[in-house]
């Protein structure tokens, strides 16, 4: 059933396919047309002239993980804001104060993170 909804989104899907197609075309054409002349030194990973002596996939600082988890939480908070922002005129002050309560809950967490030093990078 082709409804108005699908008609609205039709260009988005076409654009998706066009961009995928375009990037594949560009890459393969360049790969085919250019002269490929690989050798071992050329294909080894670049480390400013040194031989790479160990695997590059190392463990790294746990703070990146913390940033990711804080991002999830604040992203979810932002997501809860979206329907609120668009329907604030219909939900009266009750909806407004519900959101303020929600913000206070998260602000508590934010201040905790700040005070304990989770946002510090040395």
């Amino acid at each position: 059933m082709p409804s108005l909804f699908y008609e609205e989104y039709f260009p988005v899907w076409i654009a998706l396919f066009v961009s995928i197609f375009l990037s594949i075309i560009i890459f393969t054409l360049s790969y085919i047309l250019a002269i490929q002349n690989p050798d071992t030194e050329k294909l080894s990973s670049y480390e400013c002239g040194f031989d790479p002596y160990e695997d590059a996939r190392n463990t790294f600082d746990i703070r990146f993980y913390l940033v990711a988890i804080l991002f999830i939480i604040f992203d979810l908070e932002a997501v809860f804001f979206f329907p609120w922002a668009i329907s604030l005129s219909h939900i009266t002050s009750w909806g407004f104060w519900t959101m303020i309560d929600f913000i206070i809950e998260l602000a508590l967490g934010f201040f905790y993170a700040w005070k304990i030093g989770a946002l510090e990078w040395e």
Partner: peptide, 18 residues
């Protein structure tokens, strides 16, 4: 849901922060 998010944040910080 807000409280769950708060608990998640505090828990993640307590677990990871050295």
């Amino acid at each position: 849901a807000g409280i769950v998010l708060l608990v998640a944040m505090v828990g993640a910080i307590v677990l990871t922060l050295n």
